[in-house]
């Protein structure tokens, strides 16, 4: 809170006007429309619509396809989060031991942040391409017949790898920052108390890193749920047989390709509730920090 403030009354509104206008026109109004549409059903020609209450939601929740999408989203988000955070933590711990070479390694590890999810998808789609890709060729040697076009598991693995790959750099940077924020004296004290490197990690470093870990957990789940649209659309398009049809992709597909506005809007509303709860979690607990 500032002690000294300007007394103008009109000026602040002028300063806020662009932001508020855009927020209202492109955020609040469409969100309101989504809520409204979720209670309506359009006729086959999209001319008339009638109020149907919670019918759209009921239809969704009893639809095996939507249940499948929920499950796929959960599996996908958890896998991406674990894989990307695990690799990033390992790399961060390794870089934390480095003195001179830390900067070089960091540069070589952070660049994927700049790669668009869609491009990441294309790259891995190519690497795993069953006929000309590098990986199926390698996997064939160990006797695994990779085919993400027909195999549900392979398709899921592909999108998880592509999504996790892109997110490693982000997690890496935050883990490195978190590790550097731990006072050296703590680890020195533990070393004097006779704890070896592995023990020190589990007794001292990892617990002290928990605020970073928790924060990244939320960020990664949000990333996997909402920012990976490009990965899916550029590769599997939700297939095969709905195996990678995550919720944001289904909203788009049902709304634009399937032209089922009511159902798409209901899905939007459910997603909104999800983002709101994730944001609340982030602000409630991350602000307070899981700390000692």
């Amino acid at each position: 809170m500032k002690r000294t403030i300007f007394s103008n009354q009109l000026l602040p509104w002028l300063l806020l006007a662009p932001q508020l206008a855009i927020t209202f026109i492109f955020f609040l109004w469409p969100a309101g429309q989504a809520v409204r549409q979720s209670f309506l059903r359009e006729d086959a020609f999209g001319i008339n619509s009638s109020f149907v209450g919670l019918t759209n939601f009921r239809a969704l929740l009893s639809s095996p396809e939507y249940m499948n999408s929920l499950q796929v989203t959960a599996v996908f988000a958890v896998s991406v989060t674990i894989m990307s955070m695990g690799v990033a933590l390992l790399l961060a711990i390794a870089v934390d031991r480095m003195l001179k070479s830390a900067r070089v390694y960091t540069t070589l590890l952070v660049w994927p942040y700049a790669v668009a999810p869609a491009v990441a998808g294309i790259l891995w789609w190519f690497i795993f391409n069953p006929t000309i890709g590098v990986m199926p060729y390698v996997l064939d040697v160990v006797g695994y017949d990779w085919n993400h076009i027909s195999s549900k598991t392979d398709a899921m693995l592909l999108v998880v790898i592509a999504s996790a790959w892109k997110q490693i750099s982000y997690n890496f940077l935050f883990f490195v920052a978190g590790l550097q924020a731990i006072p050296a004296s703590m680890r020195e004290a533990a070393a004097i108390d006779g704890a070896g490197p592995v023990r020190r990690f589990f007794d001292i470093t990892f617990p002290l890193l928990s605020p970073t870990t928790f924060f990244l957990l939320v960020v990664n789940i949000v990333y996997a749920m909402f920012d990976t649209f490009g990965v899916i659309d550029a590769t599997t398009e939700g297939g095969p047989a709905q195996a990678t049809n995550i919720m944001v992709y289904k909203v788009y597909f049902d709304g634009f390709i399937g032209q089922n506005i009511g159902s798409s809007a209901a899905q939007s509303v459910i997603l909104m509730l999800l983002v709101i709860s994730l944001t609340v979690i982030q602000f409630r607990w991350v602000e307070k920090k899981v700390e000692y």
Partner: peptide
């Protein structure tokens, strides 16, 4: 002022992927 602040804050919770169809209609 508080209301203006909240309007801006709410945009955090509305990624484009979530309100994709109506936003497209507006545009």
């Amino acid at each position: 002022r508080g209301l203006a602040f909240w309007c801006i804050f709410v945009t955090l919770m509305l990624p484009v992927e979530v309100r994709i169809v109506p936003t497209f209609q507006v545009v």
